[in-house]
Amino acid sequence: MPSAMNDIARAAQLLHAGELVAFPTETVYGLGADAHNPIALEKIFAAKGRPADHPLIVHLPDASHLGDWAIDIPAAAHTLAAACWPGPLTLILKRHPSVPDLVTGGQNTVGVRVPNHPVALALLREFGSGIAAPSANKFGRISPTTAAHVKEELGESLETSVAMILDGGACAVGIESTIVDMTSATPRILRPGAISANTLRQLLHAPVHDSHAAQQTDNAMHIPRVSGSLAAHYAPRTSLQLCAVESLPAAIAAALQQGQRVAVLAPELSPPLLANQHVIRRIASADFSQFAHDLYATLREFDAADCDLILVTTPPDNEAWRAVNDRLHRAATGSGNK
């Protein structure tokens, strides 16, 4: 395990003392606080610049802790927990009365999951309760997938409010968990992730609305607010544009004519690019899992390269790539704010 057990014990002590600890999960690095401590929770919002009504996800040591955080838990939620935990799946359930409003964003629901990372699980077992942990970055920016990203992203907050970073290496998944609302008759995916709608349907042997269906019914019924659901999120400071593969050469040429330095993320078989010192090229994997794993690190690399424009060719428009497309469209919407 990358972090020694004495580091785990110290991190748990800091959490009990109301401090913030950044730690790895299989998805992204989280900025953790005691989920029952409102004073500690306020530190998360201050460090991230996060709106107070934006709910947090509570990470649990295992599914046996569910009853401490949620009530009226449907059988389908237990089925998914048994099949997918530890793993990149967050369940939205009716909150237990003891859950602080800062965790839920003032709603009557709470998001919970059990992460699949040895360091996270060791910390949760040592701590013995729920740890609220949004991504360990400034609100709306690119999520961190290494400990170095956390240090780069939070900067001064490390000195003022983050007591410790547990280094667990690079995150295996690289994008945030699938969020499923279990409070309605039919489960609804509110944020796509590595666990797809088809996988959930197979596990439940029942219908599951995907994120597009949930958006379409938003006017007809209440949809809980959840992490990462704003139109602008996961955003680089450099302007990011999505374009079709066949449009890439023209988009690059237009940028270069304006004197811009361009970063390009495109498949290996996309139109070849002429060697140009003002163009940085990275190959986009044709495999969803690898693309997702690399995405945030690549966007951070492009930001650090002091480019004027990031061009990303649009991935396939199908369910397998839905989570990646979701992140890219939100990143493009929020990008360019340096």
Rank of each mutant, 00 (worst) to 15 (best):
residue 8 I to L: 06
residue 16 H to Q: 12
residue 21 V to P: 05
residue 23 F to P: 10
residue 24 P to G: 06
residue 25 T to V: 08
residue 25 T to S: 11
residue 36 H to S: 15
residue 37 N to H: 10
residue 43 K to C: 06
residue 52 A to I: 15
residue 55 P to L: 10
residue 55 P to S: 06
residue 55 P to R: 02
residue 61 P to M: 08
residue 70 A to S: 10
residue 70 A to W: 04
residue 86 P to C: 06
residue 90 T to W: 00
residue 91 L to T: 01
residue 92 I to H: 00
residue 93 L to H: 02
residue 97 P to S: 09
residue 108 N to R: 06
residue 109 T to R: 00
residue 109 T to D: 02
residue 112 V to M: 00
residue 123 L to P: 04
residue 124 L to S: 08
residue 130 G to N: 08
residue 131 I to E: 01
residue 134 P to N: 06
residue 135 S to I: 03
residue 139 F to V: 08
residue 140 G to S: 13
residue 158 L to Q: 04
residue 161 S to T: 11
residue 162 V to D: 05
residue 171 C to E: 02
residue 178 T to E: 05
residue 182 M to I: 04
residue 197 A to N: 05
residue 201 R to G: 07
residue 212 H to V: 13
residue 214 A to N: 04
residue 216 Q to R: 15
residue 218 D to H: 14
residue 225 R to W: 01
residue 242 L to H: 06
residue 248 L to A: 14
residue 254 A to I: 02
residue 260 Q to Y: 04
residue 261 R to A: 07
residue 265 L to N: 03
residue 269 L to Y: 03
residue 273 L to H: 07
residue 275 A to H: 11
residue 280 I to F: 12
residue 291 F to C: 09
residue 292 A to V: 11
residue 298 T to G: 08
residue 301 E to C: 14
residue 304 A to I: 09
residue 307 C to L: 05
residue 316 P to W: 08
residue 317 D to Q: 15
residue 326 D to E: 13
residue 337 N to T: 15
